[in-house]
């Protein structure tokens, strides 16, 4: 009998960077253009098949920006095996929150794998964040990798989630 392993991962990022859209694309493979801000947290689940077995990913999608006080955010982060940190390629200030989020994740779990997603890559003409900036911040914060994603087109979304799942398994 195959054992179903469960792992919790968190999506972190400034408001309106597309965290909920990324989850929806990954879990339901669909996209909705309408922006509806998340308050608190919403948990989605998806069973993925990897070479080492089946993994039930519990994806915690939480309020973006500074709308959660640290205590509430920390309560959401307990037990997370990995995190996706999301920025919006069309707004440079969405990188500013990464450092604080990385610190909070590492306080609870120093070895937690972090993956950086630069979302909205489909908005080519509006892009203001360069690959160099992403490399630099990913390296500075001990991130394993970064992906240029589009929840709209689906570009690299599944790849990024699966890569994080594999990193979690490697560290387990």
């Amino acid at each position: 009998m195959t054992t179903l392993i469960q792992k919790k991962i968190c999506l972190l990022g400034d408001f309106a960077v597309g965290k909920t859209s990324l989850v929806r694309r990954f879990v339901e493979d669909r996209f909705d253009d309408k922006y509806l801000g998340t308050i608190g947290v919403k948990i989605s689940r998806k069973v993925i098949t990897r070479s080492y077995g089946q993994l039930n990913l519990l994806v915690w999608d939480m309020t973006g920006g500074e709308d959660l006080d640290t205590k509430v955010r920390m309560s959401y982060l307990h037990g997370a095996a990995g995190a996706l940190m999301v920025c919006d390629l069309t707004r440079s200030y969405t990188l500013d929150v990464f450092e604080g989020y990385a610190r909070q994740m590492r306080t609870l779990n120093p070895r937690v794998p972090l993956m950086f997603l630069a979302n909205k890559v489909d908005l080519v003409n509006e892009r203001v964040i360069s690959d160099e900036q992403l490399w630099s911040i990913s390296k500075a914060l001990g991130g394993q990798s970064f992906y240029l994603t589009s929840a709209k087109s689906g570009e690299s979304v599944e790849t990024a989630f699966l890569h994080l799942a594999d990193l979690i398994e490697e560290k387990a």
Partner: peptide, 18 residues
């Protein structure tokens, strides 16, 4: 104590309860 605030859940009618 431990508190988890405002956990959103989808309802069948498309609304969310917390």
């Amino acid at each position: 104590s431990f508190q988890l605030e405002r956990v959103g859940r989808d309802l069948p009618d498309g609304s969310i309860h917390y």
